[in-house]
Design a protein around this nucleic acid. Structure first.
Length: 598
RNA sequence: GGUUCCGUAGCUCAGUUGGAUAGAGCAACAGCCUUCUAAGCUGUGGGUCCCGCGUUCGAAUCGCGGCGGAAUCACCA
């Protein structure tokens, strides 16, 4: 079924050809939704055509309007306000649209892999020296939701995670555990492994600072003290041993990383995110050196006297960038060059999207440029899905000041709040503890996820704990509540033995709220496409909120089961059903579950 | 200093090929449960869309110049 806009658009082009003997391209035709305060469904902006018609806007609009009513099969009537031609789609077309929905379970979603495009999306990418925090939460939720949105747009999606499991920061935790851990394990401590390891990272920093302070008191400069402190030297030695595959260091590393992985997978599971493939930096950090060699041979890169390798990007408005240290070891960029090449070779995808914070905008600009200069055709298909930082009312999160919001704690708190709130409202009194727990989990998580995803990803956002646990208004629980209400209607309908039948095209759509709900549902496919194009879960979140609000108004204004006219009742049941389905699909695209009751 | 991003109601945010009188939520106040879940609905108040200039029939949206904020510019990742 062609959508109404394209039908109207084609007819408009035709109208202008016939009325004014002029050819206009589709881009010139501005068709938008009619604002609610005016009558109509779609509005044609006629200003662009007055030059062609050589008549004033009102007259032009009337002429086009008349033509469309007579010649466009979906246009019923029109009105003109200023230069705006408001068009009403025939009611039978809307009813047909609703009727077709019943036979279209995948409404709004493209068939899996139908676009012929394969996309790899990298997200999460944690360090294994401390637990996940609020910043990672935004990353994980965005990455997971985007993968769903891209799938809904018909792309084949490969979700990958690149775990940073090696490096000096990992050695710091390891060293601290060795020195002060007294053989403690997550079991003995009764603590998640990632949190335990994080404690030792903090411990290292604490002791390191003490040593620096002591050195400063001996009159050594800050810079030198940071380099000379025995702890950091030990950590560096440990890193060298690790790179040399020293047995004792490796086994310690494996053990502690194992703890962290276990902790992470618990957190991932709790948040409901997953991956198709996990890469480890310990296995990829040496990649990229061969590419650098090739770049040197091609003359794209150059070597300095100290034998470090650089690329000059000053002509591209950037700086010179180091790709290999003077001792021949890799930097972060080198590895990223290598892994990108490896991935394109292995998966042959069209695009690689990195979900990484905007503090690395420069890095990804360089990455893509370097790849381009090295001659990889897909360099322009490396996309950085850059998102803004999460700030707290007190400002930025600082681990030193203990203001980091831990991911596990955060989820637990949201769930606890949901539990208290449900108890207070007496919502779940009749359910078993297990059922209650499941629903309460869903609500708490929805509050958190929706709160984060509703904000445009590229913007920095403020995470106010007080606001995040609000379950009223523009929130996840509000959307869930709307869904639960709908399910309740159908439970009642079953009790009363009310059956649904096909929507009759003769049904009167007499209430505004019915009409606006239909229009809202109609928009869904365009919203999914928009979210995919702009890589923005926020587009979905804002839509599903508007849809839910619209439904609640409809629910308030219109009796459904109690409606006596059976045709109207039937229509309202269909509208409720399809609203429920679209809410569920939308929330699914956000990685949020919806409860049958709450 | 260079580059990039941001600035909309008291607060948090929508508003994307330039379109009509700039919208929600929270907070405040006032209403609505003997009728399908009140985690809901309705109403009131609240705006120099950071400022200025320009392009245009028309600018929150585009361009230029300011002001304010953030990120980044490591032989860190």
């Amino acid at each position: 079924m062609a959508d109404f806009e394209s039908i109207v658009l084609n007819s408009t082009i035709e109208a202008i050809k016939i009325l004014y003997n002029s050819d206009v391209s589709p881009e010139v035709v501005q068709l938008q939704e009619t604002r609610t305060e005016f009558e109509g469904d779609f509005t044609l902006v006629v200003f662009p055509f007055v030059k062609i018609s050589k008549k004033n806007p009102e007259l032009t609009a009337n002429e086009i309007g008349n033509y469309l009513v007579q010649n466009c099969e979906v246009v019923e009537k029109f009105n003109v306000i200023k230069g705006f031609l408001n068009l009403s789609v025939k009611q039978t077309n809307w009813l047909k649209f609703i009727r077709n929905l019943s036979a279209n379970e995948t409404f709004g979603l493209q068939d899996p892999n139908s676009s012929g495009s394969k996309v790899m999306i990298e997200y999460s990418s944690p360090n294994t020296n401390k637990p996940l925090h609020l910043g990672h939460v935004r990353n994980n939720l965005l990455g997971y939701s985007l993968s769903k949105i891209l799938q809904a747009n018909g792309h084949e999606v490969i979700k990958v995670n690149l775990v940073n499991d090696r490096g000096i920061h990992i050695c710091k935790s390891m060293l601290a555990w060795k020195k002060w851990g007294e053989g403690i394990t997550p079991e003995k401590a009764g603590k998640k492994g990632d949190h335990l390891v994080g404690d030792f990272y903090v411990k290292f920093d604490l002791e390191y600072k003490k040593q620096i302070k002591a050195l400063l008191e001996q009159g050594i400069s800050q810079e030198e003290a940071e380099k000379k402190a025995p702890l950091i030297i030990e950590a560096q030695e440990m890193l060298q041993k690790w790179e040399a595959h020293d047995e004792s260091v490796t086994s310690l590393w494996k053990m502690m990383n194992g703890w962290v992985y276990e902790g992470f997978s618990e957190t991932y599971k709790k948040m409901g995110v997953d991956f198709d493939r996990i890469y480890y930096e310990s296995e990829t950090y040496l990649l990229g050196k061969a590419l650098v060699q090739k770049g040197l041979e091609k003359g794209v890169l150059y070597q300095r006297p100290d034998s470090s390798v650089w690329i000059d990007l000053t002509k591209d408005g950037l700086d010179e960038k180091l790709l290999l240290r003077s001792d021949g070891t890799s930097v972060y960029m080198t590895q990223d060059l290598g892994t990108a090449a490896q991935r394109f070779e292995e998966y042959n995808m069209q695009e690689l999207i990195y979900v990484v914070g905007n503090e690395q905008n420069y890095h990804f600009q360089v990455l893509s440029l370097v790849m381009d200069k090295l001659g990889f055709s897909w360099a322009k298909n490396l996309k950085h899905m850059s998102y803004g930082m999460v700030e707290l009312p007190s400002g930025k999160m600082k681990s030193r000041e203990g203001t980091v919001v831990d991911a596990d704690d955060l989820v637990d708190e949201m769930v606890n709040t949901a539990r208290e709130m449900s108890k207070e409202l007496g919502k779940l009194d009749e359910y078993s503890p297990e059922q209650t727990e499941e629903i309460v989990r869903m609500i708490g998580l929805a509050a958190l996820k929706y709160f984060i995803l509703k904000v445009d990803p590229k913007k920095n956002m403020l995470f106010d704990p007080k606001e995040s646990i609000d379950f009223n208004g523009n929130t996840g629980p509000f959307v869930q509540y709307s869904y639960a209400r709908i399910q309740s209607i159908f439970r009642k309908a079953a009790d009363q033995n009310i059956k649904m039948s096909d929507v009759q095209e003769s049904t009167a759509v007499s209430v505004d709220k019915e009409k606006s709900l239909i229009r809202m549902l109609y928009k869904f496919p365009a919203v999914v496409a928009d979210a995919g194009k702009n890589l923005s879960p926020a587009v979905i979140a804002n839509y599903v909120y508007d849809l839910s609000k619209e439904f609640n108004q409809f629910y308030h204004d219109c009796p459904i089961l109690k409606e006596e006219n059976s045709e109207v009742r039937n229509l309202r049941l269909h509208l409720s059903e399809h609203t429920g389905k679209v809410i569920k699909k939308s929330m699914n695209l956000l990685g949020i579950d919806v409860p049958e009751r709450m």
